[in-house]
Design a protein around this nucleic acid. Sequence first.
DNA 1: CTGAAAGCGCTAACAC
DNA 2: GTGTTAGCGCTTTCAG
Lengths: 339, 339
Amino acid sequence: MATIEDVARSAGLSRTTVSRVINDHPYVSIAKKKKVKEAMEELGYVPNSAARSLRNQRTGMIAVLIPRVMNPFFSQLIETLELAAAESFYQLIICQTQYSAKKELTYLNLLKTKQVDGVILTSAENDWSAIEGFTEYGPVILCNEFDERANVPMIYMDQQEAGYKATRHLIEQGHRKIAYCCGRFRSNVASAREEGFMMALHEAGLAFDEQYAFREAITSSDGTEIFRSIRGDSGRPTAIFTGSDEVAAGIVSEALRHGWSIPRDLAVTGFDNQVITELMNPRITTVEQPVREMALKTMEVLLERIRNRQYTGTERHQFSMKLIVRESTHMQAELAGIQ
Amino acid sequence: MATIEDVARSAGLSRTTVSRVINDHPYVSIAKKKKVKEAMEELGYVPNSAARSLRNQRTGMIAVLIPRVMNPFFSQLIETLELAAAESFYQLIICQTQYSAKKELTYLNLLKTKQVDGVILTSAENDWSAIEGFTEYGPVILCNEFDERANVPMIYMDQQEAGYKATRHLIEQGHRKIAYCCGRFRSNVASAREEGFMMALHEAGLAFDEQYAFREAITSSDGTEIFRSIRGDSGRPTAIFTGSDEVAAGIVSEALRHGWSIPRDLAVTGFDNQVITELMNPRITTVEQPVREMALKTMEVLLERIRNRQYTGTERHQFSMKLIVRESTHMQAELAGIQ
DNA sequence: CTGAAAGCGCTAACAC
DNA sequence: GTGTTAGCGCTTTCAG
């Protein structure tokens, strides 16, 4: 493996000059520059990045902490983040916390050990007090996550508004008994969404029956379970709010198999606007999150912070979501859909 | 930021001793070991990984090249790979080639610049001759990818068998005109699959009509398009083989919206056994790939090669796939499904 | 414009 | 058991 020393020797110049050429510094004569380039070419020289990192105190790596890659919301986030990172010549390291607070801390350590220049936290498992200490070692950005106490940038969506809008829509369709499903974000995301949900009920003078709260619903088979559990009830809800398209699809799919008509027998809302919502029949009403925009903003803020070595200081970017009404909640939409 | 030097001074010992404690070497007295640990604790010391990488010639990073994260097959692969890597204290770097040969080369350069200890190539965009040169800098593993000329480990599935099995199943259901869809892997994956497809047709004495070959089908909306394009034909196929569950779901979904009955009017097979195949109604017949097993084998082989600094030398691990018959191709299955 | 030399933080001979 | 010391490959003063 050729080193800068080899190149220098081969070109009959000093390491300094070679380094200047590599980094495109001024004050190198054209002739020598050419000589260096030839030598590099001939030796197949490539700068060793560990040495550069050590010297420059900068790795060109960014860690993204997510619960799981397979969760479509997060993989969509990752996709855009990676594209944005690559554009600025940064590499993305994937860190799956698997909803484990301990794993999260392990990954946050990448910042301490200088393996990454910054961290993007998309779903905090630890309390902020446990995370705060890491912010002195490099920028930590909350993306999709939110905490009142956090003194770092936060890029997030108005979950409360989203919960409110979707629920309000169900109420407008005449529903009085509405079930609530969410995943196990221990974070403020779920609670804000639930606040919005409750707010809409409250406003309409409706009570919530805790019996119909499902707070561990993540996958489509969780949806299947949920359907089965309410299926026989006489006082069952006529509509279900879910925090995930997969759960919604699971419910719809199972209901159809049991001969139910959606939305007549049961109205269902999803969350995320994933592909599946358009493939189901009826199509599923859902909430569209501006994932791309968030990802881009996140990377922009992060790179800015890395550049300025500014690790603390809050900064809030809130995005709005859009309710997309489809046939799983709305008869009219169903009719329009058939064409 | 505390360094090893600081710890040594604070503990009244040498850097060597501290280093020994960090790396759990023998020959350190219990008393001093304790002293060192206390000093590390007090100073909040964490070893700098750039320095370690430089010194040890090892980064603890692995690059995974995939076309796109959002493709469920690849995100599933990533998920398992990351888990396996984390278990051995390796970090995974995500590299999206976006089907670009140039981007692929950029990412392969991570090996040259020593930013990673190894590379997993899941879908080669370049010809092997362009990739071969990188193998002298570190291990390159083909996972899901295959090339006769490659002198590196290959972990892959028997795509030909899969194509054959699925097609044969369609023929057994009485179909004589079968359409073919695949994505744009420029790799041998697609061609092997197609070989299997053709082999089954041939064996049954059936001809293939090139008019019904769709070789750029990736997403569910591609599936929608495909349905529309065959919809009006009088001599249209009665069955479709697809290389992707999403395409299959798109076809099924659109067909149902047009009042077709699946599989009576059109039989459809998917590929990958993604969640969506069980959510659609009818459920979709598909081919299950042993993604998890492949991912684990890949990581095992890669870590082994890193350990032994053995970069070249072929080694083939072929996995079999399983056809999962569901209602989208099989009436009986449909009846059983209704229960 | 160019080069000599110090040092980023760590590990591993080698000597004691 | 423990310490001294020479680098890993690179960038950047500083002096010329």
